[in-house]
Design a protein around this nucleic acid. Sequence first.
RNA 1: GGUCGGAUGGCCGAGCGGCUAGGCAGAGGUCUGCAAAACCUCGUACACCGGUUCGAUUCCGGUUCCGACCUCCA
Length: 499
Amino acid sequence: MKTQLTIFNTFSRRKEVFEPLNPPFVGMYVCGPTVYSDVHLGNCRTFITFDLVYRYLLHLGYRVRYVRNITDVGHLESDADEGEDKIAKKARLEQLEPMEIVQRYTNGFRQVMQQFNVLPPSVEPTATGHLMEQIEMVQKILDNGLAYEKNGSVYFDVARFVQQYPDYGKLSGKVVDDLLQETRDLKRQDEKNNPADFAIWMKASPEHLMRWKSPWSVGFPGWHLECSAMSTKYLGEQFDLHGGGMDLQFPHHENEIAQNVGCCGVAPVRYWMHGNMLTINGQKMSKSLGNSILPHELFSGQNSFMSQPYSPMTVRFFMLQTHYRSTLDFSDAALLAAEKGYKRLMNALQLLPELQHPGNTPPQMPDEDLAVQAACNALYDHMNDDFNTAMVLADLFELSGKINALYNKQLPPDALGLETFNRLQSVFPAFVQEVLGLADDTGAANNQLSDGLMSLILDIRAEARAKKDWPTSDLIRNRLNNLHIVVKDGKDGTTWTVE
RNA sequence: GGUCGGAUGGCCGAGCGGCUAGGCAGAGGUCUGCAAAACCUCGUACACCGGUUCGAUUCCGGUUCCGACCUCCA
């Protein structure tokens, strides 16, 4: 039983009780996308994971400032510090302004996030919008003697830094000596004093499209720098939570810490969280491996991996069935199963508000009452246990069973005490919709016109059934089935859903 | 090669030193004009080999296989 929120901290490799620096305020930073191409499903998993964290913190009553950046410059294409900027490359290929590329993929990213019902962050800063802050940070690191300039570029001096901050490497589990003795032959390493050093400011080559003036050269900031600068600006030198995908642990997050400490003298983050990768056919889905599925390809069914389209909420549900620190393998069979489970949950969600309680307080079936109370408590216990959404869903299915049984009169209306009944009616939707962020996209969230038409049609069918006119009754049902409308005859009349 | 993580019933996936989630699929039953849905019951799984223990799927060691990071990636 966990009555307090505990979070697995990558830095300590342990679950720790979450204690914000300045409650009720929580500062949370998540590394956002680099907007040089469409977000793929693996990216989405990370943002859905941290959307869940954000939502639960809000649900617990914290006042969260959630910062998720847009990386629109400085992210290099290949080998350490010498490849082409990803956005500039794309711009050159498509003959567009770099900012057109940025705008296009930022728009696309936001649209996909909306489809997945991911809440927008409180601040969504861009790297290009924070050049001043980044340049200032470079200067401070230089002033602190932890960086050096070579031919207009500025490099972070890892060997020197390690002397005053022995924890360098701890986050990603690296042995510093190994990093410093890296023997691999990387091109154009001659400017660096040490292979482990990394650029915080890069001088732009003549053909480089994205360039800004700085005290050292006309150039652009290093990739890791933006997150350090922007988290410091909006959340302060120290803040509570930092998230991102596991593949950012090294070098990105390790170097982020180094820059913050190198600039401000304090470790910036109290709790580091890392989401695991999404795999397809057992292999990491990644842009560079070319095995990524785009969200719209999954939603439309236009892809070579799946037999049918899957809705955004089905995919979200599917992801929540797995703990965020486990890898998740995408497959058609698994999604098909998830789709059915998701619909089952939505069905219970729809029925719940229709339930009536007779009002007598003592439960007629104490065991059922206890079971419902226990499941309601378990929702919090499991969420508090490092966001165990798989268990939360199990609890919700437990409650779904009770909701269905009450609705179908398999349990008497006063099986639960009034208090328990009221709790069920408030906690269940709160977890499904607010915390897990599962909206109903099954098509049963109807409009007035279809509601009216359906009630007309079902009234006619009810008359036919009353006269035992089974051919007419079945004709109506079959024709509706052809329109993917499923008719269910219950004890108290007929309901329908869209499949 | 170095570092780290994982191997769970037909499938997906939690979890734990003994009380053995959940979803999907399957079997039986209740309900029903039939159907669908719903509800009830059922399958006793934890890669392999040793060890610790009264007892291990869960802890320790080894083996095999898989993956991640070490280089751009959420």
